[in-house]
Nucleic acid binder design. Structure first.
Length: 603
RNA sequence: GCCACCGUAGCUCAGCUGGUAGAGCAGACGAUUCGUAAUCGUCAGGUCAUCGGGUCGUAGCCGAUCGGUGGCUCCA
């Protein structure tokens, strides 16, 4: 049976509605600011935006007025009319619009699109008109403004954005809007945004007492609270088990190192901006490490290696510090201090595919365990214009290693998308892209090929022919950093962690204080069995205790009253509200231990 | 780093256009001894982010700094 082909967003009616709504918005804004300059206004996920260069900053009141005016405009039922014109004509139409003139130049000269990226062929130049407003635009649009439902769009926010996405350019004002086919869809979307806010890891992290930030410690430097500490311990335990099975060995390396190491690695010229500045002692500069690789390279190079020893897989949960710009920080997802689920695999070229796919396999095991389904594997490639700047200047090796990765993924039948200009400076990589609750995209895990740095470290092994050979290095971090992973898991589970990951696994609740001692004994016995439990013997009523445990999303509540104590039993209430009354503690322990040992998702 | 917005008790928030602060929860204490998501009462808690300025006077005005939020740029 033929599989139904999903319509591309670019071909959908929704896309045309949003693109057209952007034009209508631009018209409303230009009415307010006749001297304002327009730039571009494309559809995006869930909506659209338009970038303006205006004589003054827009205010929230302005946005309300713009939205109101847009409603009037769409009701005018103006047709969108396309006209193909020459570059000369276009320049006349947009004579007082410098940004449009720049775009026309780009189109005319050799095909640059609106973001300044090269196009394969010289495109035609077209303009779209609705009523009084004309915009340089390749379309497509809806037929008439009446296709934009006046109650199915909303202006969302105002933000700064650089012209053509380059921070050297002027900052424009970007107005974001959302538009849908019906009022219902808009309402659903807005509701969904509200729901997403509830599972924002920054909110949950505070409520569940996972981590905090403190002004005196500094931005981007999370303090892990006891509950967060437990999760980290569990994640490390998981990683160590999995890596041991997969043939990794563990190493440990210092947090600071002499400047020389990063000069040799090549990180300093590429990476200095993201590093904390050096400290100088007795004439020697030391840096806090932003990554562990160079030290692992030193360990590999610390003795002679034979092809018989390869692959060598060095693993470490290394603590790194990166000076991310202040505006880039974002809860736990983007921090300045982090612990990476790091490892470096040194192998020969003939072993590459197996090792690389071994890592991908590890990813899949983790994702299955966590039930992670919404992610995209991205093959991140170099860009020619970045050679010698962002990327090591060796095009031949770039193309070769990119092809090796592509082939390995294809042979493994693993779906992925390709993106240029996203590689590491030393080689291509597979990034696992995920989205935070509020919709921001992040690379969770990464699997990178390094064809450049081993040579700089003079790493070698003796091959079968008795000759020195430079190994390839695979950098990988399937469990990301503790920071990003915990942030992601908070949102993924909305704080309802599986039992093995839950900071507090069991809360024992006494109904009256006659059962307090019984409750404490039960908690102690659970702890003897390796289960994280404590008794709530506060003077609150049982209902309040249960509420407290539910709010902290404790998976199991053991309730004990006079009946249970009399019969030497317990009653179980799980986080999902299910109950199992008057069972033996031993029976519960079997259940809890089963879930924990299997790292099961069910309660 | 850039643009915009925000910063009031541990937390969530109220405080109209300036007349020197209030609630709920949490906490302490007391009472209550209770069957699956909040028992009642009392008390304690803030130099309204910080610093400077304007004003007879401000938590509400202006400026700077620090921190946060939404984007941009950048990234695990």
């Amino acid at each position: 049976m033929a599989q139904q082909v999903q319509e591309r967003y670019e071909d959908s009616k929704l896309y045309r509605i949003r693109h057209s709504a952007a034009h209508v918005m631009a018209r409303a804004v230009m009415e307010m600011f006749p001297d304002g300059k327009v730039t571009i206004g494309p559809p995006v996920d869930n909506g659209f935006y338009y970038d303006f260069d205006l004589p003054r900053n827009l205010t929230p009141e302005d946005l309300a007025l713009i939205e109101k005016r847009m409603r009037q405009i769409v009701q005018g039922k103006h047709e969108f009319q396309k006209t193909v014109i020459s570059a000369e004509e276009a320049k006349k139409v947009f004579a007082d619009q410098p940004y449009k003139l720049e775009l026309i130049e780009g189109l005319e000269k050799g095909g640059l699109d609106e973001y300044g990226n090269p196009l394969n062929e010289k495109p035609e130049i077209s303009i779209y008109r609705h009523d009084t407003f004309v915009d340089l635009c390749r379309g497509p649009h809806v037929e008439s403004t009446k296709d934009i439902k006046q109650d199915a769009f909303k202006i969302m926010s105002i933000a700064g954005a650089y012209w053509r996405g380059d921070e050297k350019n002027k900052m424009l004002q970007r107005v974001y809007g959302t538009a849908w086919e019906s009022k219902k869809e808009l309402e659903d979307y807005l509701h969904q945004l509200e729901e997403a806010k509830k599972r924002d890891h920054r909110k949950l992290g505070k409520e569940l007492e996972i981590f905090i930030f403190d002004d005196e410690v500094g931005p981007g430097l999370p303090l892990w609270l006891p509950n967060g500490g437990v999760m980290i311990e569990e994640l490390e335990k998981l990683a160590k088990e999995m890596e041991e099975k997969a043939g990794y060995v563990r190493v440990r390396t210092p947090n600071i190192t002499k400047e020389d190491l990063f000069i040799r690695s090549g990180h300093l010229p590429y990476y200095a901006e993201s590093m904390y500045p050096p400290m100088e002692l007795e004439g020697v500069k030391y840096y806090i490490k932003p990554m562990n690789c160079p030290m692992h390279h030193k360990i590999f190079g610390s003795k002679g290696r034979s092809y018989r020893d390869l692959p060598i897989r060095l693993a470490e949960y290394g603590t790194c510090y990166r000076y991310e710009k202040s505006g880039e920080l974002f809860g736990l997802m983007r921090v300045r201090s982090m612990q990476m689920n790091d490892a470096h695999i040194y192998c020969g070229e003939d072993q590459f595919e197996q090792e690389f796919m071994g890592v991908i396999d590890l990813y899949h095991k983790y994702f299955e365990l966590f039930g992670i389904e919404k992610y995209v594997m991205r093959l991140s490639l170099h860009a020619k214009q970045g050679l010698g700047k962002k990327y090591v200047d060796n095009e031949r090796l770039w193309l070769k290693t990119e092809d090796m990765v592509r082939r390995a993924m294809d042979n493994g039948g693993v779906p992925y998308v390709e993106r240029t200009d996203e590689a590491a400076f030393y080689g291509p990589k597979i990034d696992v892209q995920i989205w935070s609750a509020i919709g921001r995209e992040f690379s969770l895990a990464t699997n990178q090929v390094d064809f450049a740095v081993p040579e700089r470290f003079d790493l070698k092994f003796m091959n079968k022919e008795g000759a020195d050979e430079i190994p390839l290095c695979i950098h990988r971090a399937p469990l990301s950093t503790h920071e990003r992973m915990v942030g992601f898991l908070l949102e993924h589970y909305a704080g309802n962690f599986p039992v093995w990951l839950s900071p507090e696994q069991v809360r024992v609740i006494s109904i009256t204080d006659s059962q307090n001692e019984y409750a404490e004994n039960i908690a102690a016995e659970l702890r003897d069995n390796g289960i994280r439990a404590h008794a709530d013997i506060s003077a609150q009523r049982m209902n309040a205790k249960i509420r407290g445990a539910q709010l902290m999303k404790v998976p199991y509540m053991i309730v004990v009253g006079a009946n249970e104590m009399e019969a030497n039993q317990v009653s179980l209430r799980a986080r999902d509200g299910s109950q199992q009354n008057n069972i033996s503690l031993a029976e519960f322990i079997v259940r809890a231990k089963d879930r924990i040992s299997r790292r099961a998702s069910e309660l």
